[in-house]
């Protein structure tokens, strides 16, 4: 009896140790990269290019962040990104929420095939024709073409998440509304839409994040004053190869909004509701 009990206890302890070791192995690379970018952003450039590297400096400094906002119009880029991602997300909600409802209700899953095709299409293949088109109409140089192309990213995410959400709603309430004389449109507006609010929030946040993160569309369409945040950061890299402090500060400023948004919807992301919608284009 005692031997069995001892064995059981030993196995339990070994299980805990194994779990802890696994967690360290899995999380160390993630934590280290984020730690390192924070470390770089809070050190003077002398410390950043020291070898062996200085992990935690004796003295931290905010000079990199100050330089970033004083020497580059980062607030303008931030505002551009907000306009592009906000606009593309709004358009995606306007088009995608009803579309998701229609697909969920009529079980028209051929739309899903269209979305798979849009995922397979290389993002750059949209760019050549649209670039040519926008240049002909003379839209290049405003944020509008960037926002329009970002619908390629945001719309599939919203549609995908809304299909899943509307399918999970109970049908009885909508049937009752229709018996009371509501039209299909009224049923959608007054019954299904309020119920789907949590799904809409998740879809909006997720499509905003992936639009915010997108680089290629902005890189092709953006002029000097219409750069989005990722494009601005990339430009800093090409011009300031060795100013690691300001570069790290810029990286943090770009990522911070989406990482904060992620915390709000982490449960839904891990819950798998959004798995297929992630990274649309």
């Amino acid at each position: 009896m005692d031997a069995v009990f001892g064995n059981w206890r030993w196995r339990k302890w070994a299980g805990h140790a194994g779990l802890a070791a696994s967690l360290v192995v899995l999380l160390a690379p993630v934590v280290f990269v984020f730690f390192w970018v924070i470390s770089l952003s809070l050190k003077y450039d002398i410390d950043n290019t020291a070898y062996p590297p200085i992990f935690i400096p004796d003295e931290i400094t905010w000079v990199n962040f100050r330089k970033l906002f004083e020497e580059t119009p980062f607030f303008l880029y931030f505002w551009n990104s907000v306009q592009v991602s906000g606009g593309a997300t709004a358009a995606a909600l306007l088009l995608g929420v009803p579309a998701g409802y229609g697909i969920a209700k009529s079980k028209a899953h051929s739309m899903a095939v269209l979305m798979l095709i849009s995922r397979m299409t290389p993002g750059l293949s949209y760019l050549i024709p649209l670039f040519t088109l926008f240049q002909m109409i003379g839209l290049i140089g405003t944020v509008l073409p960037i926002a329009i192309t970002h619908i390629v990213i945001t719309l599939p995410i919203v549609v995908y998440i809304m299909i899943g959400y509307f399918e999970s709603l109970p049908v009885e309430l909508e049937e009752a509304a229709r018996i009371d004389g509501c039209t299909t449109w009224q049923t959608f507006l007054h019954v299904a839409l309020p119920l789907a609010r949590p799904g809409i929030v998740v879809g909006a946040i997720l499509s905003f994040i992936y639009s915010w993160n997108n680089f290629v569309f902005g890189a092709v369409f953006a002029g000097r004053t219409t750069r989005t945040m990722p494009v601005a950061v990339y430009n800093m890299l090409t011009f300031e190869q060795f100013a690691w402090g300001p570069l790290a500060a810029a990286a943090i400023v770009v990522m911070l909004p989406v990482l904060i948004l992620t915390i709000f919807i982490q449960k839904e992301i891990v819950g798998g509701l959004t798995a297929g919608g992630v990274k649309g284009a």
Partner: peptide
């Protein structure tokens, strides 16, 4: 969820 360009940097 992080911005790929920033991570690449």
């Amino acid at each position: 969820m992080a911005t790929p360009v920033a991570i690449a940097l």
